[in-house]
Design a protein around this nucleic acid. Structure first.
Lengths: 238, 238
DNA sequence: CGTGTTCGTTATGCATCATCACGATTTCGA
DNA sequence: TCGAAATCGTGATGATGCATAACGAACACG
């Protein structure tokens, strides 16, 4: 897209400013929540005035949209990196590593997590083909890659629930053709359930619903939940 | 608290107005999201002016707090009612009914669901011992009641994951003494995992992450997820 | 029928979002 | 090197929403 051969001085400066704006916005988000990201505060923190920010973003929603896209990329990157640090043939360990990264990121950046996977923010328009859909697909694809690998290794057992409706099987075949043949419909269904379990545990954890457990018990509960999700999906754990 | 023997005309009128305010606010929330609940809009919808609302709520946060409490109560009521409509000894059917009600409510009122179980709203203070904690405990107690009944019936099998850390077991014994003796620590841990699965599936569903499946496949996916959660927890299904 | 409470309105102050017009700095071609 | 043009930041301005204050109308009650 952009030719890196011509990073004009001005362009570099501008990019740096944009980065700083987003970084400051993320910082404010951590302490004040999503909706209290004020241009005034961002500008003040940067030693500027509010109107200057409009040179970089059309309005508040444009900044939020950018932050959402960044959040998706960051979450995806963190999960992918965690996954890559484990032997490719040890799919169980890869699932655990990815799940941990998913939760750790959510705990580290609860505001961003809420921003990308929570209820759509105030009154902005859902950017149609926006990053939301793409990143969700991306998360799914990371999961499905794990299942494909497990199937190739012959380690994918039958999931806990094997009933699959015709509609569900049709969706699996149509929307995720890369799985057909290798991953049976029941495993596809179980894969989504595993994702739901991971996501639910992450949400409850990140939003403090497990705070009444100590740090230690909470961590171990999450590990047990990850193992449960894997076993229920017929995923090779131990 | 309030003596129902003296519902003054004025008191009744006032209560009705409060109800109308909350109802209008909920209506606006459904279409404009949580944060865009403006006093101006509520008042306009009611044929009043904004300052009049301050006769009923100290500020915007007070209204939100009330709505959160109502949301918890409503969700709890709906789940309890669904559960009660099933034979008390058929714990599996009760779990399914409660899970369905949980999701249906979230799909019907995604904004309220986000309000009570999503990321804390803007910059308001989390009401310490507020309704949040109470209602979460209440939801848990509904779940644990199911597990206790299953244990009494002798139908509670070993969950998929039986490893329980000492810290987790200690928390279970300390925070939920009503379970000790009847429900083993591993089942307690599995119960929370089941809740996480239900909650995750509900979140993803309510926020549209499963829209690419049709209505039919989505419903059946959820049913399969409910069954998976139950089986993984050693809950008697079928 | 008068008195006091309750309720709703208009008027006001304050903060934020967003735009505009202007000045200062930087970039780059002649 | 110098001057035109683009870029960037500021102060001024208008619109909207939150919240308070002061005033007036309607109601309950003795």
């Amino acid at each position: 897209m952009t030719l890196t051969s011509t990073p004009t001085r001005r362009e570099r400066q501008r990019a740096a400013t944009v980065e700083e704006i987003k970084e400051v916005a993320r910082g404010l988000m951590r302490h004040q929540g999503i909706t209290d990201v004020r241009f005034t505060d961002i500008a003040k923190e940067m030693g500027m005035t509010a109107p200057a920010l409009y040179r970089y973003y059309a309005d508040r929603d444009a900044l939020l949209t950018d932050l959402i896209a960044d959040g998706y990329r960051d979450l995806g990157r963190v999960v992918a990196e965690a996954r890559e640090q484990v032997d490719a043939d040890n799919v169980a360990a890869r699932w655990i590593a990815a799940g941990r990264a998913y939760r750790d990121w959510a705990r580290r950046e609860p505001a961003q997590f809420a921003l990308i996977l929570g209820m759509p923010v105030p009154g902005y328009v859902a950017p149609e083909e926006g990053p939301t859909t793409d990143a969700a697909k991306d998360a799914m694809s990371q999961l499905s890659a794990l299942f494909i690998r497990a199937a190739e290794l012959g380690d994918l057992k039958a999931p806990l629930v094997t009933d699959v409706s015709d509609a569900m099987a049709a969706c699996a075949a149509e929307k995720h053709p890369e799985l057909s043949g290798l991953v049976p419909p029941a495993s596809f269904q179980a894969m989504i359930t595993a994702w739901a379990t991971l996501h639910g545990a992450t949400c409850l954890d990140a939003y403090g619903q497990f705070d009444w457990l100590g740090d230690e018990a909470r961590d171990q509960l999450f590990e047990a939940t990850l193992r449960t999700a894997a076993l229920a999906a017929g995923f090779p754990i131990e």
